[in-house]
Nucleic acid binder design. Structure first.
Lengths: 163, 163
DNA sequence: GGCAAATAGTTAACATGTAAACTATTTACC
DNA sequence: GGTAAATAGTTTACATGTTAACTATTTGCC
C-alpha cells in the first residue's frame, strides 16, 4: 500500500517524507476530482469558478457584495471582478450598486441562473456518487476527519496565521 | 467532527452527501497546501509548475522530451510550451532539437537550475513537515491510503451507470 | 517510392489566479 | 468640518490551464 502514487508518477523512490507523499497524493486526488467535475460543468457552459459563484449566491438566498463572494471562494480579490463580468455577460447575474454604501456592488442571480443550477443539481450529485461512491461511509467519514485534521496547522509562526 | 468545513464555508447545511463533503474538504485542504508551498517557491522566483518541471528533470537524471515532462505533470500538452519558454528565458533549462527524431525537443537542466533546486530542498522539506507534521505517522499513512482508494474509480470510461 | 496516419510540438483564444497599484467612497477622529 | 485611514472594487501585468487548430516530421503500409 501507499506506493501507488510512486508508480503513477514514475518517480519511484524520491519521496523524502510521509508528509510529502501525503501532500502529493492530496494534490493528485484533488486534480482528478476537479477534472471530472469541471467536465460535467462545461457541458452546462460553466467553469468551476463560475458554478461556485452561482452556488454561493443561491445558498445565500439574497444578493451579496462582490467581496463577500470572493471571501467564500478562497480566492484573491481581483479575480472576482472578471468572474462576475463573464457571468453578467452570459446573463447569469446582475450587478447593482448599493444605495446605502455606494462603494458596494451587490450581485444577484437571474432567473436563468436559477434554472441552470436546478438542471445541474442532479447530475452533479450523481457524479459525486460515481467518483467516491465506491468508498464506504466509514472510509468517507475517516477521510473527512483526516483532512480536517490536516488543515489544523498548529500556530503558524512564519507568514501570517490563518483566519 | 466532520462539520468544520461547514463553518469555514458559511454554508452550513447544504452538503447533500458525504461524497460531496469529502470532495469539498479535499479541495480546500489541497488549496491550503498549494498556497503555502507556492509562497515558499515564489521566494525562490519559481511557480509551482516551474518547480515541478525542474524536479522532474532532476529526478530523470537526463534531458527529457517536452511531452514526456508534460505527461508526468498531469497537465495538458499545450501548457508545457509556455512553461518551458519561461524557464528557458530565466536560464534554468535549455532546449535541444533531437538528432534522431527532429520532431522531438529535449529539455535539459542548467547548472544554475541544479543549484537552485539544492537551495530549495531543505526549506521545502521543512515546510512539508510544518504543514503536516502535527499528524501522527499512523494518521498520515491512513490518509495516504484513503486518498489512493479515492482515486480508484471503478470502471471509468465515459459516464457509466455507477459503482 | 509514395502517401495517409500517427506523433511531437506549437500557436491562438479564452478563463482563471496572483500581486501591485489605482479609484471611489465611507469612517474615524481631532 | 476637514483630512487621514480604511474599505470596496477595479485595472494592469503576468503565469497558468484548457480546447481547437496548425506545422513539421516520422512511420506504416501498399
Amino acid at each position: 500500500m501507499a506506493g501507488k502514487l510512486r508508480a503513477e508518477l514514475k518517480k519511484r523512490g524520491d519521496f523524502e517524507s510521509l508528509e510529502q507523499e501525503a501532500t502529493l497524493n492530496l494534490w493528485r486526488t484533488s486534480d482528478q476530482l476537479s477534472n471530472r467535475v469541471g467536465r460535467l460543468l462545461r457541458d452546462f457552459g460553466l467553469t468551476s469558478s463560475q458554478y461556485n459563484v452561482l452556488r454561493i449566491l443561491r445558498g445565500a438566498g439574497e444578493p451579496l457584495p462582490s467581496l463577500e463572494i470572493a471571501s467564500r471562494l478562497i480566492q484573491v480579490v481581483p479575480a472576482i471582478t472578471g468572474l462576475i463580468d463573464r457571468l453578467e455577460r452570459n446573463g447569469l447575474v446582475v450587478r447593482q450598486r448599493s444605495e446605502e454604501d455606494r462603494r458596494v456592488v451587490h450581485v444577484e442571480l437571474t432567473r436563468q441562473a436559477r434554472h441552470l443550477l436546478e438542471r445541474i443539481d442532479h447530475p452533479l450529485q450523481q457524479l459525486h456518487h460515481e467518483l467516491l461512491g465506491h468508498m464506504s461511509r466509514r472510509e468517507l467519514k475517516s477521510l473527512i476527519e483526516l483532512l480536517e485534521t490536516a488543515r489544523e496547522i498548529p500556530d503558524t509562526k512564519t507568514k501570517k496565521s490563518q483566519s
